[in-house]
Design a binder for these strands. Sequence first.
RNA 1: GCGCCCUUCGUCUAUCGGUUAGGACGCCAGGUUUUCAACCUGGAAAGAGGAGUUCGAUUCUCCUAGGGCGCGCCA
Length: 472
Amino acid sequence: MASGSSPVTRFAPSPTGMLHIGGARTALFNWLFARHEGGKFLLRIEDTDRERSTAQASTAILDGLRWLELEWDGEVTCQSKHIERHGQVAQTLLDQGKAYHCYCSPEELTEMRQRAKAQGRPALYDGRWRDRDPSDAPQGVNPVLRIKAPRQGETVIHDRVQGEVRVSNRQLDDFILLRSDQTPTYMLSVVVDDHDMSITHIIRGDDHLTNAFRQQVIYDALGWGVPEFAHIPLLHGTDGAKLSKRHGALSVSAYKDMGYLPAAMRNYLLRLGWSHGDDEIISNEQAIEWFNLDSLGKSAARFDIDKLNYLNGHYIRQLDDQELSQDVLNILKSTNSITVDQTAQQRLLAAMPEFKQRAKTLIELADNCVFLVSSRPLPLTEKAQSQLSEQAPALLAELRGKLETTEHWTAEALDKAIRTFADKKGLKFGKVAQPLRAALTGGASSPGIFDVLAILGREESLGRIQDQAAAD
RNA sequence: GCGCCCUUCGUCUAUCGGUUAGGACGCCAGGUUUUCAACCUGGAAAGAGGAGUUCGAUUCUCCUAGGGCGCGCCA
């Protein structure tokens, strides 16, 4: 049983695709539990399906975990390395009469299931080779090895999330341990590996809940203690359907590309199925301090991008300006083919305190920053063009003359100068600010106009105003 | 078909038999204002349905409905 003072959890993905957010959350919970308990968080790649496993998927999963900053302990284990050991365990089961060979063909099994379904019985293997004399074995057929599952009574698992779950053994059949090519099945491999790796807590999606019964049967046959189970509810897409690739870009790397922060992602995922009273914004430290299995919910949750956006905005505002401007710089370089020189870099850094207040994602932040590093003359959006119609060019020409004489190019001084200018002209401040904004940014919305002016600097600002001002 | 799991505002959730059913996102209104955000204030918004247990059920039990998962020589 899971006694002892140092729990060991594991995340055991099969390398058949990207790490999606459902898997990411499972990893997060395992990681948090291990960190909270001062135990270990191990990573095991379940690659026994040679057909579908790929090295790329393996790499993608590892990259996803690294991005989320979920550090695993020790070396990554590959299940395929333990095949020999799995075979040995199967052999002892056979030797002890707890497993047997079955010579059924796939067609025979399919027919068996179909008939059972049609008759309203569970679609299970009927155990026809269980007590059959081995001398009946057909020639030239490689048998599979099946476990002798109990036929009476019931199998009970104690789950930290689901409670005590019991099922009649009539619902369990003599499932396969070793395929006809002698390779172990998932059911055997997980049990042996979890045991050999001294896993104390198995935290995984509740799509494995019914597997747990079968695994319990193996544990019992082997006389091994069973780890603690915690089957967490699955994540659903926005529409309530199962999370799948069809429901949008749901791999972890896709969220990275969309400009989400790992901290936001972790916070969001944590609150999907786990709670700590009314707390919503939970730091990594708090999460580790607070995480427990008892506060896990039992029902499936839908993915809600709005809330992720909100959290991401929050964490962007928390981020260090230096780090943030570097992120923005990288995005701008890769997406806008803009040459970002020294001044542009300085502008970005100077812009961060203001600009980070108004972005939900890194991508949005970078978009908002583009005008800072664009070279003159700026392209104008439709809205900017309308702001620059009629009297605006003349107004800007006049304003430019005024600003040229401004001694100190600071937000404070410019504030004063422009307000005075508007007053003298008998204009509402906005009537001056909007055309100015259009000239400076090429758009109709931006952070405070004085900040923009200060960030762009005297020369660039005056130049941009000049571009849109009426000729003398 | 058989089995298991789930069901509180649109969404994520709190509630460990007694609450005006709380918070958050989103939404609406107002404030701030120089645009967009951010921020502040206020508002609308929920116990799937039905039985039972109980002085009293969102909370416990059962049934129904709906949803999910599993039933592979996949993991």
